[in-house]
Design a protein around this nucleic acid. Sequence first.
DNA 1: TCCAATTACTCAGGGCACTGAGTATTTCAG
DNA 2: CTGAAATACTCAGTGCCCTGAGTAATTGGA
Lengths: 154, 154
Amino acid sequence: MAAVDLTTHPGHLARRLQQAHYLLWNTMVSEEITSPQFAVLNALVAEPGLDQRTVGERVGLDRSTIAEVISRLGRRGLLDKVRDPQDGRRFLLRLTDDGLRTHKKLTVRTARMNQVFLAPLSAEEQTLFFDLIRRVADAAEGLRNPAEPLVTQS
Amino acid sequence: MAAVDLTTHPGHLARRLQQAHYLLWNTMVSEEITSPQFAVLNALVAEPGLDQRTVGERVGLDRSTIAEVISRLGRRGLLDKVRDPQDGRRFLLRLTDDGLRTHKKLTVRTARMNQVFLAPLSAEEQTLFFDLIRRVADAAEGLRNPAEPLVTQS
DNA sequence: TCCAATTACTCAGGGCACTGAGTATTTCAG
DNA sequence: CTGAAATACTCAGTGCCCTGAGTAATTGGA
């Protein structure tokens, strides 16, 4: 009987939080466009003409996942993908008019959903919520990329 | 230029938090057993002989996902699955000796990982972290299951 | 100049997560 | 006692997420 209490395990809580979010997104925002897909649209609204890898970096998706997400958005006609004439390895990404319209529509709904999602917390608690999660996530990410040792001594 | 700041979107943060956790789990706990798989082992340590659906309920996994996870654990020989003689629809689940040993080993490593993961936060902040996430997740879950209206008036 | 490293992307493979539809078993109302 | 509803599980389909290995293009140093 050495069972552990999962409610004190951050990983378990993170998973449950994401599931809860997934559920709410599906009912309040869109059944077609997912949250990661919206993140990609958003990145391309901010910086049109980015390449695939950089978009992935902006929204936190690895090379394989971003390829899949972009392929889906392309199939739906929300973005265009053209070879960079300057660098034949890259694809430059740009939203279509439909993509822009979709982003605009979902931006409104997403804001509403975030309000509902965070409703159990007061304004100060919401700030804290963001801050705590961001600090934990950033720190763990930093463990992977050991902040490049600028100059190797000697 | 109506791009949005994703760092104030709880869904985006939740995803990043989970990715960070996934990374740390892989390096500090196990490359074989995943966090959801550990959750299932843990549930069966606490309550041996549970059926599949109930285990899913305990750890927060839907019927399809829990079936896959259990099938993997079965293939690895960490649990046994037998028809309930009392109810031919159910499978009763029980850890093997190997399953118990694995759970014990991972429990230690998981505790270490949680410490590292939460190291950026003070003790009070950690408590707050759990509390805030749990409240948000619980509330969103409650929206799905509308808390069964005990007695339908008239 | 040329070839070895780097870089952008693809592909295969494993795992998590959900929905909708289908099968078998049990339960329960008439 | 029987047939409709509920329940446990399976299966197919979609999408996210990661790693390791492979291909094509570019870059940079000898």
